[in-house]
Design a binder for these strands. Structure first.
Lengths: 160, 160
DNA sequence: TATTGTTATACTCTATAACTATA
DNA sequence: TATAGTTATAGAGTATAACAATA
């Protein structure tokens, strides 16, 4: 994929490529280390799946949550994302600026907005999901179908 | 663990706690999402294991790599960490300032340093490894021994 | 008194680029 | 011409704190 001349300067920053000449000790026995590397690989796949769409994992997550929870408040969105209210605010601003989501006044609570996807937003989520899931399968191609299910199951059990 | 009054404001920022009232769609079917959440859990365990020691995952990784590769150059350390040279520089500065590592001149190449752990650094790595591995086991306690091995194996296969 | 949204601020992390000295 | 180290800078991401409006 990369083509710029990098000479013998090693892997580009942000990569998780393993360097043959280096002894990594027992780093790979740490869940944190192994998870971080796998996560970088998965996020690389996400970046390829959404290239040129100015998408990020948090933005994608927000879109999916808005799709599944129409009318949710900004604070609740923040909780779902595990981010502070101010972060949910900026995320929402971005979505609104792109006409992917809109804030609607609530009748029951004048403090909170109800957040909804626009038509474009709803269409985009559908398109995005297809692309991201397709790249997910590609990056996990090394695993058998059984291993893929098992990985997700173990991750869930580990996190819970 | 937490005790500050947070009322009903939901999980604190940076947490990956699941909110019962929210529909997460099929987010959990994405490797990136599942991996990110698991990684947060693992890094939380790392933070608990190293509380008050001003340790971070990159610092710990650097210490382990220095332990396994005495005399390594800063650039090679950067490659191993997947970070830019400038990042390896600041990391090394931090270690040197704490008397955990030292730069030694090389006879064969006057451009590059050779990096070595000091006695304190070597002692610290041993202590850290014990603590981090102990907390690793605790966070993975929900998994059986077989599942733990399988998780690490699948992560490795996924990343490679 | 607590919550929602908002804004401003600060901090961490890390990539990029330019420079120097060696090779 | 390329590499190792250094330094300065910039950007992304995100937490904290304070405030007004509402509950």
């Amino acid at each position: 994929m990369s083509s710029a001349p990098r000479s013998a300067r090693g892997p580009r920053p942000g990569s998780n490529a393993r360097v043959a000449s280096i002894d990594y000790g027992n780093l790979h026995a740490h869940y944190g280390y192994a998870l971080k590397r796998a996560q970088i690989a998965a996020f690389d796949a996400f970046a390829r799946a959404t290239a040129g769409m100015q998408m990020t994992p948090p933005r994608y997550t927000a879109l999916v949550i808005l799709q599944a929870n129409p009318g949710i408040s900004q604070s609740a969105l923040g909780s779902a994302l595990g981010t502070a209210r101010s972060g949910a605010m900026m995320l929402t601003d971005w979505l609104v600026r792109r006409d992917l989501a809109e804030r609607r006044h609530r009748t029951d609570n004048k403090r909170a907005w109800g957040l909804y996807l626009t038509c474009e937003g709803a269409a985009l989520v559908v398109r995005l999901k297809r692309r991201v899931f397709a790249h997910d399968q590609r990056v996990a191609a090394r695993l058998t179908a059984r291993e893929r299910r098992e990985l997700l199951r173990l991750l869930e059990k580990f996190t819970e």
